[in-house]
């Protein structure tokens, strides 16, 4: 039994590293159709799509930076899918070449050749909203989707791989920001996001995806912003996060909820506006100019204390590798 579970997790790791989710591929194809034939942008997007097809066919990593592994495990699987089990799967996947030796001790500089160490892989145990049954604003919840955590009723494990090039581009603003002329409102948030897009250019391997958290403390901001990257790009308009988080955050602030349905509509509109505005900047794939700079923007909010107002942006490259399996 244990072995079957580990093999299943190894398969999840291999598939996540070698093939992009359908929604991301769809967005990349749509972007390719928009660019002029023969332009740098068209060449870059074609190269990306050819690469994805080849990697999927071979089952090899589509990008050599197989990134930080973050698992989101359904709370109900806590006893079955333990960190020890996940480490076994990661070590096995690494030994088989599905993952690069990609884990360095920050003090000694030595490599953890099996990609396993204290805190690696990152594991979050989460409670799906459907199970928790509170803080859910019914009208704004999108229809269930196959293959995504949100739509699955059975306990699931989600994995996301995020490479260093994109992680280096993530950033956090503190409002008000005098340089940007950004105040403590959604107009100020908008300025932060657009400024980030212009500063990041194509360096995080554009076209990318932004996960944004408005508010929270600094740590929560980054966590929630990154969680937004789990949301499918083609979900029906909602700014709702996929699930609630337990752990230190919940202990301090109570259940983490995004707010009421009205907020969700507001955030959904903000997402759409930010995406279209960012794509007017002309930065394009790999920053060589073009129509598609971002594939998506996903925004959530968290309460803040009166003294703080953070806007946190998690940048994800086009190689947005995420996948969910039911265990």
């Amino acid at each position: 039994m244990a072995n079957a579970l580990i093999e299943k997790l190894v398969a999840l790791i291999r598939e996540t590293a070698s093939s992009l989710p359908d929604d991301v591929l769809k967005a990349l194809r749509a972007a390719a159709r928009k660019e002029e034939k023969g332009s740098s942008a068209a060449v870059v997007l074609k190269t990306i799509l050819d690469n994805c097809a080849l990697a999927k066919k071979q089952g090899t990593p589509l990008c050599q930076d197989t990134g930080t592994l973050t698992f989101f495990v359904d709370e109900r699987l806590r006893r079955k899918v333990t960190p020890a089990v996940l480490k076994k799967a990661v070590a096995l996947a690494t030994a088989r070449g599905y993952l690069r030796k990609n884990c360095i001790d920050s003090v000694t500089g030595k490599s953890y050749d099996d990609n396993c160490a204290e805190g690696a892989p990152v594991v979050h145990y989460t409670v799906p909203r459907a199970v928790l049954g509170r803080g859910v604003s019914k009208p704004s919840l999108p229809a269930p989707r196959a293959g995504t955590h949100r739509g699955t009723e059975s306990p699931a494990v989600t994995l996301i791989l995020k490479g260093g090039g994109s992680e280096n581009m993530s950033r956090q603003y503190s409002l008000p920001d005098a340089m940007l002329g950004a105040g403590r409102d959604l107009a100020g948030v908008r300025k932060c996001v657009l400024d980030a897009v212009q500063k990041i250019q194509g360096y995080g391997c554009a076209p990318g995806i932004l996960g944004v958290c408005i508010g929270g403390d600094r740590a929560t901001g980054y966590e929630v912003a990154k969680e937004q990257l789990l949301r499918p790009l083609d979900e029906k308009g909602s700014g709702m996060p996929r699930q609630e988080c337990r752990g230190p955050v919940a202990m301090v602030g109570g259940p983490v909820v995004v707010g009421e349905a009205g907020d969700a509509t507001l955030l959904s509109r903000l997402e759409k506006n930010l995406l279209s505005e960012a794509n007017t900047l002309g930065i394009g794939p790999m920053g060589l100019g073009g129509k598609t700079t971002l594939l998506g923007v996903k925004v959530a909010s968290r309460p803040r204390v009166p003294a703080s107002f953070f806007v946190t942006i998690a940048y994800m490259c086009w190689a947005c590798r995420r996948r969910t399996i039911v265990v």
Binding site: S40, Q201, I283
Partner: peptide, 25 residues
């Protein structure tokens, strides 16, 4: 350098977005 050019042109496109009084959301 395309990088220098795109950085400059995207900066030029950003300024009017910042000064626009149009309220987003």
């Amino acid at each position: 350098s395309l990088f220098a050019e795109v950085e400059k042109s995207s900066g030029a496109k950003l300024s009017p977005l910042f000064t626009s009084t149009r309220q987003k959301s």
